[in-house]
Design a protein around this nucleic acid. Structure first.
Lengths: 340, 340
DNA sequence: CTGTTAGCGCCTTCAA
DNA sequence: TTGAAGGCGCTAACAG
């Protein structure tokens, strides 16, 4: 029962027309007799005709679909970015295809290969934490397929990028902790491979420096973002001879893992230890105490990235200038750090 | 700078071969001189050659990609299902394309049209809450493209389906509330268009009946799953002359919204009112009190759906028998209902 | 207004 | 071992 897909030829034969006429009728070309068009349209509907996008794409070498590559989508962040991007792209007549690498460099490369093979018109990318070699994205560049990075960006590629001001967000978060009287602030950092985790680390360091606080390397732990590790490191920090009086975490899941450990130990927040996260995950407002966090305009990241891609898609011949958009962050203070 | 994509003809010309030979060398056909093959392979790599999947698909009329359609992916559920499906599909050599309808029937139809046009080999679907007409999926069926429904299924289509035992899960949840002494149990139900919300409602009703408790229609509210509505309805229930002593919510986000309202009113859980959700969203373990919930094997839903699709994809000629898999659920008791 | 022709990039007979 | 030719489904000239 392998269904034969009806083609314009089937319709043409049935109506004793040439396939060109059928094609014209279907695409709304003006030069077709009204009656002919009606006949074609009627039969097409009746036969479940669907234009084969594959053939059209082969012909026009544009697929009208954009690929979005994300490293994970279990936390709210990437789904929300995608929703923003999808909205803008849909308005411009593009379909969206999402590929999920699960933080695996291998899968990311496979996905890139797949998207290249299926000839997407453009690419929105946030790479995995394992990705250090970007050749699989450079191929797109070389073929003239626009690529826009967001959130996790590749500094070495001359393409458009959308990020938030990670440095400033981190700086503000740590300064806030200092203002509430904290002096021995730990930082659970992300992997060094991610530019945003480096920026957040720098924000942390500079905030300390600005307020003449010593930087103690034993208080800075860089880790791979897997939550069981977070648990171990938080425990490690709390077991230190002089445990930190505050913790700035690379992201909200990490911070929430810290909350769990802290509560399990019967410590009080923020008196014994204050905690700040990054992203304003919806969970942050739900946990107890509420989590202080650096919010970022998530949907807007997707929208901006989509717009940059679109503008690049439009201006074909003109010389293209890569653009970098940096969106602002702002601190949301909740119970985990608000002085009582 | 519109990049010309290198084709086998480019390689053929450069090497003074015919495109057939190049094709054979590239696909690993045995009848090619080793030296020729090496030359072709070397040049292909050097020229960034990528086979055009479009052309191949046009030829073989199979794209080796599966479309997955989900109504939303902000909560953990659908992403996790997708991860499960993707794993199984990837092992079988299929790429995955995700389409997100944002609970919009229009978008769902547009996505279906897109996937049909790009000739996916199969479809995994969970429809929107607005979907009452399934013609856009029937077209796939008629064309011999296998469709498998999961989570939100269409009863009227004779295709494979994967669900969990919603009825039993709901029944067990409500019975648990009764066992802890609750007698006046409200149900915040989902829209009637969703089969699983109907099943959960039935489980609720039958549990009451089994224990000879009256069913009071004022305690049953069916709503559209938008959280601000949940807030309104929970307040409404608590303002009743005789407010409920327990609430069974259609899903965890709803239940958590209820927790917020209940806590804001200074009511105690579970003494004043107990709450049970559905799905075991990771947030459920983090809120205070912890949320009692009906857990379901989320990843397995995706895996099973993928397997059903694959088996259908494999047996081409044979008569196909649609299969329905119902996965078990189990109750996780936490503070929101555990008697103190 | 409609038909004919020529490809888009690739694989697959069929010949040589 | 290689080349030539045909065709997947469609659109876009170019003729009538």
């Amino acid at each position: 029962m392998k269904g034969h897909q009806t083609t314009i030829i089937d319709i043409a034969n049935a109506l004793n027309l040439s396939k060109s006429t059928v094609s014209r009728a279907l695409t709304g070309h003006p030069n077709v007799k009204t009656k002919t068009r009606e006949q074609v349209l009627a039969l097409a509907a009746q036969m479940d005709y669907q234009r084969n996008q594959l053939a059209i794409s082969l012909l026009t070498s544009q697929t009208k679909t954009i690929g979005i590559m994300v490293p994970e989508f279990l936390s709210f962040f990437f789904p929300k970015v995608i929703i923003g991007a999808q909205e803008v792209l849909a308005k411009a007549g593009y379909n969206v295809v999402i590929c999920h690498s699960n933080e695996s460099y291998e899968t990311e490369m496979a996905n890139a290969r797949g998207l290249l093979a299926s000839r997407v018109d453009g690419l929105l990318v946030s790479h995995t934490k394992e990705t250090r070699n970007f050749d699989h994205f450079r191929i797109f560049e070389r073929k003239g397929i626009p690529v826009v990075f967001f959130n996790r960006i590749c500094e070495d590629m001359a393409v458009s990028k959308v990020t938030v001001d990670d440095y400033q967000g981190a700086f503000r978060a740590v300064e806030h902790l200092i203002e509430t009287g904290k002096r021995w602030i730990a930082h659970l950092a992300g992997p060094d491979s991610l530019q945003n985790s480096r920026n957040r680390l720098n924000g942390y360091l500079d905030a300390l420096k600005k307020h003449d606080l010593a930087v103690d390397s034993s208080l800075i732990i860089s880790y791979d973002l897997t939550l069981d590790k977070a648990n171990i490191y938080v425990n490690h920090l709390l077991n230190l001879p002089q445990p930190p009086d505050a913790l700035f975490a690379i992201n909200d899941p990490t911070a929430i893992e810290a909350l769990k450990v802290i509560k399990a130990r019967g410590l009080r927040m923020p008196d014994d230890i204050a905690v700040v996260g990054f992203s304003d995950d919806p969970i942050s407002a739900l946990v107890e105490p509420g989590l202080t966090t650096v919010a970022q305009p998530v949907t807007e990241i997707g929208e901006q990235a989509a717009r940059l891609l679109l503008s690049q898609l439009q201006n074909d011949d003109d010389r293209f200038e890569p653009e970098t958009v940096v969106l602002p962050t702002y601190l949301i203070i909740r119970g985990s750090s608000r002085p009582s």
